[in-house]
Amino acid sequence: MRWLSEREFVRVKLLYNTDLDALKRVLAQKGVAFDPEALMDHVVYMFEIEDCSRVTTHQLVRHRAVSYDQESQRFSAATREGVVTPASIQTNEAAYKAYDEALKTVYSAYEKMVAAGVPKEDARYILPSAIKTKLVMTLNARNLMHLVWQRTALQAQWEIRELASTLHSLAREATPELWAKIIER
């Protein structure tokens, strides 16, 4: 499987999806017409999401009836290069300077605390929400469609919009018949 969205932030990979043809064969055997709506609960996708900020994963995990396993900061050391910088900060010299200085201070404090013997799970209290994270997520088409509807909306934030539209593209590519009816925003 290939990566979609090779950018500075948010990389998504489809790890597996339910074989729609296997379900369609059962429907045919039972003489039941194919209905995407009826199969939404039975087609499941597992994704790997990387280089996404914790700001965005806080928004993501508000979608329930979805299974998540996320990189823990309790045991893994945080690294300074792994942060997402919003364009509004990147393109504003004064803002970027303040952002960069704050990050340097935060990471220096984190490293000092860990070196002084503070457990990573406690030192992490100081880490920024901009930090990049990785997680696996498994959900069915009904929940994915709800997520796509809500998080590609114009009022959603840029990073989760990017994530939701990438999830949408991968799911649509893997199971086009199921997604034919969704209206593009």
Binding site: L15, E48, E50, D69, E71, S72, S76, K134, V136
Partner: peptide, 13 residues
């Protein structure tokens, strides 16, 4: 096993 390692590893998938 992938899901378990995801929680404790910083490595890419």
């Amino acid at each position: 096993a992938v899901a378990m390692r995801r929680c404790y590893s910083t490595k890419p998938i």
